[in-house]
Amino acid sequence: MARLEEILSRIDNSEMEIDELAGQVQEATELLRKCRQILLTTEKNVQEALASLDGEADA
């Protein structure tokens, strides 16, 4: 997240050349994919844990 914030800040402040911008956008896209995967995995784990707790409560 910190790296994404850094990239966005540099883009907002126009601190890079167009060639660098293309690379930074690609890096940001890859970081966002990784973050999304982490969030999806975490959501799945939380849902499984809650389902497990619901199963215990029903017993």
Rank of each mutant, 00 (worst) to 15 (best):
C35L: 14
E30P: 07
Q26C: 10
E17C: 05
E30A: 11
D54Q: 12
D12K: 13
A22F: 08
Q37R: 15
L31W: 03
A51K: 11
K34Y: 04
V46I: 15
E15Q: 07
S52Q: 10
R10F: 02
G55P: 01
T41E: 15
V46A: 10
G55R: 06
M1D: 04
T41S: 15
A2H: 08
R33M: 09
M1V: 02
N45Q: 15
L40K: 13
S9A: 05
E6N: 08
K34G: 02
G55M: 05
M1Q: 06
Q26R: 15
A57G: 02
R3S: 05
S52V: 04
E43Q: 15
N13S: 13
D19E: 11
Q24S: 10
Q24A: 07
A51T: 09
R3W: 04
S9E: 08
R36I: 01
R33K: 15
Q24R: 12
G55H: 05
E20C: 05
A51V: 04
K44Y: 09
I11C: 00
M1L: 09
S14G: 10
L21D: 01
D12W: 06
Q24T: 05
L4P: 03
R10L: 07
A28G: 02
A59V: 01
A59G: 00
K44A: 13
D58P: 00
